[in-house]
């Protein structure tokens, strides 16, 4: 688009350089952006929703196998990752707040903190996946199951869903880290201020959504039946 000076000359009045010509005010522009972002997130809710539906049904059908499969997951790593991801949501929310108050350095620091915590989460996921490859808990012909033999087949179903759901969740996080790299660069370039910080806000909405998916994945996968 054109810069502020051109806009001032052509329109006869000054406005924020980030205001697109089809919006009246920055407020209206932000409102439209938030609405559009949420419409995207609705498609994401139903995208993960289908998987949650499949999980629910198979868990009802093969409950014993899902209990056995869930007990193979390490609750320590799952709980740690939940805490790490909630922490990253806090730093992301603070990054948006820093952008709202035109605090460029704090925005950058908080985005970097969010990226570090996101990377820690993915690192823990690598440790967990690596362990499952090592002990043969990978659905398919090479699946190794030492528990109740009758459950083995359906435990594979649990791990199919485990890898699909956590894998797609991890993919969303990797995409989020990519987006944050761009936002970090834009912040460093001084693109944002108290009136225009929509890209930071949108990144926050996306990141918090990914956090919510994990908030449900954690009890469903790790806490099927821990007592006994």
């Amino acid at each position: 688009m054109s810069d502020a000076a051109v806009h001032t000359g052509a329109h006869g009045h000054a406005h924020h350089p980030a205001l697109q010509h089809h919006f009246d005010t920055m407020q209206q522009q932000k409102e439209a952006g938030v609405l559009g972002m949420w419409l995207f997130l609705l498609t994401e809710i139903l995208f993960f929703g289908g998987l949650f539906m499949a999980y629910t049904l198979y868990r009802i059908w093969y409950y014993d196998a899902f209990v056995a499969g869930s007990l193979e997951l390490d609750l320590f790593w799952g709980t740690l990752n939940t805490a790490v991801l909630i922490g990253s949501s806090l730093t992301m929310a603070l990054a948006v707040r820093a952008a709202q108050t035109s605090n460029r350095n704090l925005t950058m620091a908080m985005i970097i903190a969010t990226m570090v915590l996101g990377t820690v989460f993915l690192g823990v996921k690598v440790i967990e996946y690596e362990h499952k490859f090592a002990v043969g808990l990978i659905p398919g012909p090479g699946f190794v199951w030492h528990g109740n033999e009758a459950l083995g087949r359906n435990v594979q179903l649990f791990f199919s869903l485990y890898f699909t759901m956590t894998g797609l969740h991890a993919l969303h996080m990797i995409i989020g880290l990519g987006i944050m790299t761009v936002i970090l660069w834009m912040t460093w370039k001084g693109r944002f201020d108290a009136e225009y910080y929509a890209p930071v806000e949108m990144t926050g909405l996306y990141w918090h959504f990914v956090d919510i998916v994990w908030i449900y994945l954690f009890p469903l996968l790790y806490l099927v039946e821990r007592h006994n």
């Binding site: 924020h16 005010t25 920055m26 932000k30 035109s102």
Partner: peptide, 18 residues
């Protein structure tokens, strides 16, 4: 929202967005 009105961007008093 104001329709078609001139939106005055004042550098010294930034409008708080939200």
């Amino acid at each position: 929202l104001p329709r078609n009105g001139p939106f005055r961007f004042q550098q010294d008093t930034p409008l708080v967005m939200g």
